[in-house]
């Protein structure tokens, strides 16, 4: 603004020789009013414009400035958030190797424990199965022996009966009966 007024003043000063020549009655006759009228008109023009536009323009520019400021603040906040997330992710990434090792060791430990538990269980099962089988075998053997004894006894009785039937005739049979009856009467 000051530059504008300075240039106006410069132009006004440049017109002074013309004013002087007016006084001397030269061909370029210009009255004082017609020399300064453009400046007065222009000053009024600028004054009215400034009066009319100053407040709305100021408000508009302030609003725009505020909007830009808010946008910048939001961007900075978003950048900070992104940076903190990046940092967190970076540290997580850095500790990831250790975490992986830890998880692997834990898994190995658990797997070992599980393996041992399974082996123990299998051993126990095997022992139980063996015991059961032994018991079963023993029972079967006893049963078989008993059956065998019964069978052998049966066979022996049958054989003895057969021998006796062959050897003992009717007279011997009667003799035996008589002897049995005699014993009975004695008793």
């Amino acid at each position: 603004m000051s530059t504008l007024f300075a240039s106006l003043l410069l132009v006004l000063l440049s017109e002074l020789p013309l004013l002087a020549s007016t006084e001397e009655g030269t061909a370029h006759h210009q009255s004082l009013i017609s020399t300064i009228a453009p400046y007065i008109n222009f000053a009024i023009l600028v004054g009215v414009l400034v009066y009319l536009l100053r407040k709305p323009m100021k408000d508009f520019l302030a609003q725009k400035r505020e909007a830009v400021g808010k946008m910048l603040k939001d961007s900075e906040q978003a950048r900070d958030e992104a940076l903190s997330r990046l940092t967190a992710l970076q540290s997580k990434l850095d500790s990831l190797e250790a975490d992986i090792d830890q998880i692997r060791q834990q898994a190995e430990r658990e797997a070992q424990a599980e393996k041992e538990r399974l082996i123990q269980e299998a051993k126990e099962d095997a022992r139980r199965i063996v015991e059961g089988a032994e018991k079963e075998i023993s029972n079967r053997v006893k049963l078989a022996v008993r059956e065998l004894k019964t069978y052998v006894a049966g066979e022996a009785v049958a054989k003895a009966e057969e021998i006796i039937r062959e050897k003992i005739k009717d007279d011997s049979h009667e003799k035996l009966i008589d002897t049995y009856l005699e014993n009975l009467s004695k008793n």
Binding site: I33, A37, I40, N41, V48
Partner: peptide, 11 residues
């Protein structure tokens, strides 16, 4: 009229 009259036209 040098003074004021040209103003509307200047606007």
């Amino acid at each position: 009229v040098p003074l004021f009259v040209p103003l509307p036209m200047q606007f």
